[in-house]
Design a protein around this nucleic acid. Structure first.
Lengths: 179, 179
DNA sequence: ACCTGAACACCGTTCAAGT
DNA sequence: ACCTGAACACCGTTCAAGT
C-alpha cells in the first residue's frame, strides 16, 4: 500500500507522477512496449524529452508503473460467482488481450528488479485466486499441484497462436481431467 | 530443402550468406536478440555496417536465419529410445536454455512473416514428435488432445521462473494424470 | 526540486556513389 | 552484383545549466 503524502510537495509530485503514468498507460495500450519511451510520454505532455527521467529514471520503471495500472484495471475485479470454468474463461480472455505486454514484462524481468517483482505479484495473485476457487472441488493434497498445473497451462495457452474457442476447449479438457 | 546452386556465383553467395549467418548465430547465443544487429555482425566480419543488408534486408531476416540454425543444432537430434518422460526431460532442458530466443521469436512473429513461419514450424515439429511418442500409450481418440495439452503445458512451464526439478515434477504429474 | 537542451553511443533503414 | 560512407529519424541515458 502507498505511503501517505506528508505535505503539499508530495501531493504535487504524486499528481505529476500519476499524470505521466496515465500517459504511459495510453501509449502502452495503443502501441505496446515498443511504442513506450520517455520521448513519447514527454510529447504527450508537452515536456522536454528528458524531463520524464526525473520521475521515472529508466524505461523499465515507466513500463512497470504503467503495466501495473493496466493489470489493476483489466484483471482487478473478476466476475462474481464460483463457476470455475466461467472464471477461467474470463481470465483467459483478459490475459489474451494483455499477452504482448505480459510477454514484454517477462523479457524485462530478466534485467529489471521492478519488472521481476510485478511479474511475481501477478503470478501469485492468479494462483491464490484459482486455489480459492478450486479448494471446494479438489482434495487438499492435490490442490496445490492442480492449481499450479492449470496456471502453467493457461500461461502456455497464451503464448500460442490459437483461436479463443480452441483455447477454451483445451482448457476445459484439462480441467475435466484434473478435477 | 534448399535449391541447388546453379553456378559459381550462387556458390559464392551461399558461402557469404552462411558466413554472415554463423556470425549472427554466435552473437545470438552470446547476447540474445537485443545484441543482434547488422552492425554487430558487420563488426565481426570486418564489413561496413550496411553491407549485411545486401544479404539480409531486415533484422528479422537475420534473426530468423540464425535462430533456425540454433534450433536445428540444439533440438535436431533427440536422444534415442521411447521413454516419454526421458524425452520430455530432454526437450524441457533444451527449450529452457533457448527460451529467451523463442520468446523473442514469438514477439517478432507478430510483425514478421518469416518469424511467424519459423515459430509455426517449431511448434509443428514438436507436436508431431510427441504424438509419435505417445501413440502407443494413449488411445487414438485422446491422442490429439493429450499431445496438444502437454505441448501447451511445456510452453507454459518455460515462461515461468522455476527450477528445473520443479518443472519436471509438474510435468510428471501432468503426464501421469493424462496417460 | 524540477526542467531544459546539448551530448553520447547506439539502433534500423535508405540511398547515392563507387568497384 | 557487391560494398562503402553519409544520412535520417529514432532510442536510452547522462549531465551541465538554468529556474
Amino acid at each position: 500500500m502507498p505511503t501517505m503524502p506528508r505535505n503539499r510537495q508530495d501531493v504535487d509530485r504524486e499528481a505529476k507522477v500519476a499524470e505521466i503514468r496515465e500517459a504511459a498507460v495510453r501509449i502502452l495500450r495503443d502501441g505496446g512496449h515498443p511504442a513506450l519511451s520517455h520521448s513519447a510520454v514527454a510529447k504527450e505532455l508537452g515536456l522536454a524529452r528528458t524531463a520524464v527521467y526525473w520521475y521515472f529514471p529508466a524505461k523499465d520503471d515507466l513500463f512497470v508503473a504503467a503495466l501495473a495500472e493496466v493489470y489493476a484495471a483489466d484483471l482487478g475485479t473478476p466476475p462474481a460467482g464460483d463457476d470455475v470454468m466461467a472464471r477461467l474463461r474470463w481470465a483467459v480472455e483478459r490475459l489474451t488481450a494483455l499477452q504482448p505486454l505480459t510477454h514484454a514484462l517477462h523479457e524485462r524481468a530478466r534485467h529489471s528488479e521492478a519488472a521481476a517483482r510485478l511479474e511475481a505479484a501477478l503470478q501469485e495473485s492468479m494462483c491464490s485466486r484459482l486455489r480459492a476457487l478450486l479448494s471446494p472441488r479438489v482434495p487438499a493434497e492435490r490442490l496445490d499441484r492442480v492449481t499450479t498445473t492449470i496456471i502453467v497451462f493457461v500461461e502456455g495457452l497464451l503464448t500460442q497462436p490459437r483461436t479463443t474457442s480452441d483455447r477454451l476447449d483445451l482448457l476445459e479438457f484439462l480441467v475435466t481431467e484434473l478435477t
